[in-house]
Simulated assay, not measured.
Amino acid sequence: MTVLAFLARRLAYSLVVLVGVLIVVFALVHLVPGDPVRLALGTRYTPAAYEALREASGLNEPLISQFFGYLGHAATGNLGVSFRNGDPVTELLLDRLPATVSLAFVGIVLALAIALPAGVYSALREGRASDAIVRITSQFGVSVPDFWLGILLISLFSTVLGWLPTSGYRPLLEDPGGWLRHVMLPGLTVGLVAAAIMTRYVRSAVLEVSAMGYVRTARSKGLPPRLVTMRHTVRNALVPILTITGIQVATILSGVIVVEVVFAWPGLGRLVFNSVAARDYPVIQGAVLLMAVLFLAVNLLVDLLYAVVDPRIRLS
């Protein structure tokens, strides 16, 4: 299958998934008890304002008409307006996206910097004390809630040492130094949790490849252990490592709500948290749609990288 045919097939699949996501989110949001229009108006409530906002938002129409109307607008990039402040949802999402992407980038870089050497080191020393230490540490990292880890890091690096700020955000292009100082703690929180998960996968992948016949043959030929590890073992373990890396990137992009709330990080996760509390339907739907698009885009990129890492893999 050619690359273009593969892309066309995956895009069609992604479109079906997105429609399914929209149906589920649309149904769940409308099944939750409460009136979002009444909540949005707050103290400004009057019967006339209530009816005007319901009509402007299309909530006075049947659910099926609301869904297809939303679907048609979403296809053109129009995700509606926020109930809380009247801002276009698309602008709100694009304004928050850079913060979440930068947090995901720092988190996954830190995770890879920890997980790759730790996982390979542990696999090459299987059964030894050092292997047990890495496995116990990674299990502890998997078990620790990210909000607790974030609070612990704030207490250490901000309260006790005073090295880093506890919250806030600086745009990378406007203030690189300020951005780095503010992103370190939330990035480290996300990165440590992801590293704990990825270390176990890296270790398993390296152990599986190490048992292959071609690795044993390379060792029997007297090749240097470092060469065998890098050229034959780690290189051939990259496919499962790519898989877990893609999953973690997509998870960070779409699931760091608690971390963003703890660090007052102005990303998509915090926007979703505030929107759920305010029952802001358009923002919730738009954010979930964007997160689904990001998740599918990461998966597509990982599939394409499979063929780059291992030419024996055909796009299918």
Rank of each mutant, 00 (worst) to 15 (best):
E51Y: 07
P266E: 08
A12W: 09
R279Y: 09
A277G: 08
Y70C: 08
L53A: 08
L180A: 15
D175M: 12
L103V: 04
T46M: 12
R44C: 04
L296P: 11
Y45V: 02
L15Q: 10
L238Y: 11
A196Y: 09
L39A: 13
R181T: 15
V215P: 00
P171M: 02
G20N: 09
R44M: 09
T159P: 13
V302W: 00
L63E: 01
E51W: 06
V24F: 03
L97A: 04
L161K: 06
L223D: 01
W179A: 13
L28G: 12
A48C: 10
G34I: 11
V293C: 14
G107P: 03
W163L: 05
I23S: 03
E126N: 13
L268M: 05
L18Y: 04
I64Q: 14
S210M: 05
V215E: 00
G162A: 03
V259S: 13
L301P: 11
L41I: 05
V144F: 07
L18G: 05
S158V: 09
A205N: 05
R181M: 15
I133R: 11
A287Y: 02
L71P: 07
A75M: 10
L300T: 06
M230R: 15
V190D: 08
I241M: 14
W179H: 14
L156S: 13
I108D: 04
N85W: 03
A211C: 01
A75G: 07
E55A: 15
V228R: 02
E55Q: 15
R128W: 08
V37D: 11
K221N: 09
A99Y: 00
G77F: 04
V276L: 09
Y70N: 14
R181S: 15
Y70M: 10
F273R: 07
G187Q: 06
L315V: 08
V3E: 15
M184K: 06
Q285F: 00
P98S: 03
G42S: 10
L301R: 00
P165F: 01
A264S: 15
A74R: 01
V3H: 14
R200Y: 15
L301S: 10
L242G: 12
E208C: 04
V144L: 14
A297W: 00
G107N: 03
G178V: 03
A123Y: 01
P88D: 04
S155R: 14
V276Y: 00
L116C: 11
I284Q: 02
L7H: 12
L53T: 05
A75E: 06
Y306A: 07
T90A: 15
L53F: 02
F140W: 08
L223T: 02
L207N: 05
N274L: 12
R231L: 14
I108T: 01
P47S: 11
S275Y: 06
I23F: 12
L97D: 05
A123T: 02
L315Q: 04
R96H: 14
F68Y: 12
S65G: 09
V37R: 01
G267K: 03
G162F: 02
G141K: 05
V206T: 03
V298K: 02
